[in-house]
């Protein structure tokens, strides 16, 4: 394999990695503050993508042709804001009420909430059960660097993703909200004793994570130019796997995990001469094996059972 091809694969892998990382960060944030996995997270990604799609259709029918860069900004902001709201509502009405209930109940309620989102899109979005074309709003061109082709849209999406990830990093480390999230994740009781509002922090965390999911959904839509109602299941499973690879609760682990999972998939697709259906089999098989080997992820400390 020559170097240019390798670089091409690396570029594609990085693109996937950004999307996965954005999803994985949500999982890890929720787990950090509440010790729960929100299994509906993948469907929030999907709903974010559909919100973006609907917004773009609404935009063009209301204003005719809109400059693409404005469209991209409006679509992204709308999707992110809407999903942030959805995330906070789900936390308030589904997850928090079951906070003290057995783990199984939380798990079920989020799984079912995901089903509600998925089915609602399938049933109520016009022809929701078919794949939908996502508008191509980013410039088409590409630069050829030797034999390596760098598409402008990929470059822009990669940049958006990286900026978002850096933004999350700054938010977690530099702001009061970030401090509150870290404190609650560390020890909810002490945090509330020190005047950090537990519920507000949880809601903000879910809003943040779900907003990132929407961003991932829009980026995914712009990249593949297609969205469909069932894409959330796989993206959710991948995002969760990525978060697990890095060790749940660890934001940087999740980002790293996203890129590792993308690498596994790319290696599965490129290095193994098998049908593309098997690339996910390969990646998930690797994750199951990993969980048997390191049940708490690569970066997690081993926590002793409290007796």
């Amino acid at each position: 394999m020559d170097l240019a091809l390798l670089a091409q694969h690396a570029l594609n892998g990085a693109m996937l990695g950004v999307i996965y990382a954005l999803v994985a960060v949500g999982f890890t944030l929720f787990f950090g503050v509440l010790d729960v996995i929100k299994f509906s997270h993948g469907d929030v990604v999907m709903l974010g993508a559909f919100t973006g799609l609907a917004t773009s259709i609404g935009l063009s029918s209301a204003f005719g042709s809109v400059p693409p860069w404005i469209a991209v900004i409006v679509i992204t902001l709308t999707a992110v804001a809407a999903m942030a709201l959805v995330g906070a509502l789900m936390a308030k009405f589904l997850v928090l009420p079951l906070h003290k209930a057995p783990t199984l109940n939380v798990l079920l309620i989020t799984l079912m909430a995901g089903t509600v989102i998925r089915e609602s899109v399938r049933l109520f979005y016009p022809q929701g059960s078919n794949p939908k074309p996502f508008p191509r709003l980013l410039p088409d061109g590409a630069v050829n660097l030797g034999r390596l082709t760098l598409r402008f849209d990929s470059a822009i999406l990669l940049a958006i993703g990286v900026i978002a990830i850096v933004g999350v990093h700054l938010l977690i480390t530099r702001t009061r909200l970030g401090l509150a999230i870290r404190a609650v994740a560390q020890d909810p009781e002490t945090a509330s004793a020190m005047g950090i509002p537990f519920q507000a922090t949880v809601l903000a965390t879910f809003a943040l994570g779900s907003g990132l999911a929407a961003l991932a959904g829009v980026v995914n839509g712009l990249y593949y130019s297609e969205v469909n109602f069932s894409m959330g299941l796989l993206l959710g499973a991948i995002g969760f796997s990525a978060a697990v690879i890095g060790g749940l609760g660890n934001v940087y682990g999740a980002i790293l995990g996203g890129f590792i999972f993308a690498a596994l998939q790319t290696i599965g697709a490129v290095a193994l001469p098998i049908a593309s259906a098997y690339k996910d089999v390969f990646a998930f098989g690797a994750v199951i094996a990993l969980m048997a080997w390191k049940p708490a992820g690569l970066l997690a400390e081993r926590s002793a059972e409290r007796v």
Partner: peptide
């Protein structure tokens, strides 16, 4: 699935069975 299931709990175990379900169907289809 027993080895990974016994070493994990709650949400992790759920992911393992979900992944298994997806794998099983893919396997049948190909």
């Amino acid at each position: 699935l027993l080895l990974p299931l016994l070493r994990t709990r709650g949400h992790y175990a759920a992911l393992i069975t979900i992944a298994f379900g997806i794998l099983f169907r893919t396997f049948l289809e190909v």
